[in-house]
Every structure is written in structure tokens, then in C-alpha cells.
């Protein structure tokens, strides 16, 4: 298409209402939050970032957050890969049944899922009662209000997010590549490790990054299953504002969280492209 001036873009008007709303009532407020983290425009200061850099308790929160999210991501992606592989290679009926089992929890409210895990994992929850009743343990196992509970809840939430992108890639693979490997004498195991896995590795990596980004911002699951003892970054930010009224610190931590998120998203879009994320082929 020949170059036209902007006035020659008849559809620009279609973009305007949504763009104005998101810029005016979302990006500008975000900008104000960023400004606040630097002490506002009148008296710029780095003291909140210095506090983030110098406070041990904040370091522990950051470390806890990255440890939990990292562990969760690895588990979720491995489980997601297995489910996606099965889905891509089973018969139509079985695939649909499996899809149903992944989709229902995927769409289920995050609060319902956290509540379910709380009922299961509490000290007087179903898992502990069953284990106590069977005489396998003498005292309830600490399954919730600790990192274990948070990881279980987050893995449960994030597995479907890993399944779908990996499954899409697996379905798009050319089956003849694997047949070719087999025909030149590779064992099924060799075919998997040397052909199938490398072909699906970018999808695995992309899914892992998305799950990690998503997990980084988690609020509800850690707040409920951590029970105040495991505090992740998002909950700490909310505590800073609601309980201790430290807005500057909360803003600086928000910026840290935001920058980490955007950096990871930039890597993801390097791999897949923003247009692809928007769904256009």
C-alpha cells in the first residue's frame, strides 16, 4: 500500500475512544505512581529505592517471591508439558475429556480454588484428617500457611496457562520429522530427545516466561494459602499501603515489580512478537 498521511487513515477514529480511556485513566495514573516512587515532581528523591535496596526484610520478601515463583514455574511447565503432550497425541474423545478437565479449573474463580485448597490442606483439613485417621501420621502435617501451600495453590492455578501454548505448538508440528528420525534408525526415546523436544523447547520456554510473569504478580492465592506467614511482593505492597501507610515505599516496590514484569514480557515478545500475542497470524 502506498504511503499516506495520517489523515488518510480512515480508521484512526476507531482507535480513539479505547486509547483515550486507557491512556487517560490507566497509563497516567500509573505514571503518577511512578512519580510518587521518586518522591513526586517537586522534591525528587531516591530515598524509597534506597530503602528497598537497604532493608533486609524487603530482601527476604523479594527472595521468597522469586523462590516461590521460580519453583512454581518449573513444576507448572513440566506438568503442563506432559498434559499438552498427551492431549496432542490422544484420540479425539479422550482429548476432549482431558480438555474439559483443564478448562473447568482454568475458568474457575481464583477465590473458589484457594478456598478448596484451604479446606483440603488445613490442620483439620481433609488430607490431614485422612492421614491421621489412617494412622500414617501422629500430628497434622503443616501443609498450608507455609510455602508448600502457596506453591501447591499456585501450581494448580498456573498449569492450564502452560498447557495451552505448548499444546498449540505440538499440534502444529510436522509429524513427518519424527517419522524421518525413526526411519533412519533413531529409537523413540532418541526421536523425542533429539527431534521432538528441541522443536517444542521454544514453546516450553515461552510458556515458562508467561507463567513466571503471571506468578510474580500473584496476590489472592499467596494471601489466602500463605495465611500471613508467607508474604509475597504483591501482598507486601498492599500491606505497606493499607496498614503502614508507606505510599512512597509501596510505589517504589510497584515500580520494581512493574519493571521486572515488562522486562520479562519484552523477552517473551522477542520470541513470539506482539502481533502474535494479539492473535494475528
Amino acid at each position: 500500500m502506498a504511503k499516506r498521511p495520517l489523515s488518510g487513515e480512515p480508521y484512526v477514529g476507531f482507535l480513539l475512544p479505547a486509547t483515550l480511556l486507557v491512556c487517560g485513566l490507566f497509563l497516567i495514573p500509573i505514571g503518577q505512581l511512578v512519580a510518587l516512587s521518586f518522591g513526586g515532581l517537586e522534591a525528587p528523591t531516591l530515598r524509597w529505592y534506597e530503602q528497598v535496596a537497604a532493608t533486609d526484610s524487603i530482601h527476604r520478601i523479594l527472595l521468597t517471591t522469586f523462590r516461590i515463583v521460580g519453583l512454581t514455574t518449573v513444576i507448572a511447565v513440566v506438568l503442563g508439558y506432559a498434559v499438552a503432550y498427551a492431549m496432542a497425541h490422544m484420540g479425539e474423545r479422550q482429548r476432549l475429556a482431558l480438555l474439559l478437565c483443564v478448562l473447568v479449573p482454568f475458568w474457575l474463580s481464583v477465590l473458589v480454588r484457594a478456598l478448596a485448597w484451604l479446606i483440603l490442606l488445613r490442620n483439620n483439613g481433609i488430607v490431614n484428617e485422612a492421614l491421621l485417621g489412617s494412622g500414617l501420621i501422629a500430628a497434622p502435617l503443616p501443609l498450608v500457611r507455609n510455602e508448600l501451600g502457596v506453591v501447591i495453590g499456585m501450581v494448580h492455578y498456573l498449569v492450564p496457562y502452560a498447557v495451552f501454548p505448548i499444546f498449540a505448538t505440538m499440534r502444529g508440528l510436522d509429524g513427518r520429522l519424527m517419522m524421518a528420525a525413526r526411519s533412519v534408525g533413531a529409537s523413540p526415546f532418541r526421536t523425542f530427545t533429539d527431534v521432538y523436544l528441541p522443536l517444542t523447547l521454544p514453546a516450553l520456554f515461552g510458556a515458562g516466561l508467561l507463567v513466571f510473569v503471571f506468578g510474580l504478580g500473584f496476590f489472592v492465592t499467596p494471601a489466602i494459602l500463605g495465611g500471613g506467614r508467607v508474604v509475597m511482593l504483591s501482598e507486601y505492597v498492599s500491606i505497606s499501603v493499607l496498614q503502614t501507610l508507606r505510599w512512597g515505599l509501596a510505589a517504589a516496590l510497584s515500580v520494581v515489580l512493574l519493571v521486572a514484569t515488562l522486562a520479562l514480557i519484552a523477552i517473551v515478545s522477542r520470541v513470539t512478537g506482539v502481533r502474535r500475542m494479539l492473535g494475528a497470524s
Binding site: L15, F26, P29, I30, L216, S234, A250, S254, T261
Partner: peptide
Amino acid sequence: AGLVGAIMLAPMIFPPIVSALALYRA
């Protein structure tokens, strides 16, 4: 399209707590 598309995806990508603080103040 790339520029506006990226702007429009922001509310989905930004961590919920960051959006929450920003919108609360605004």
C-alpha cells in the same frame, strides 16, 4: 497498530496490585 496495540495490552500485563494502587489514587 503496534504502538496502540501495546498500550491496549498494558492493563492485562501489569501486575494487578500496581494497577490497583494507581487507580486507587486516581
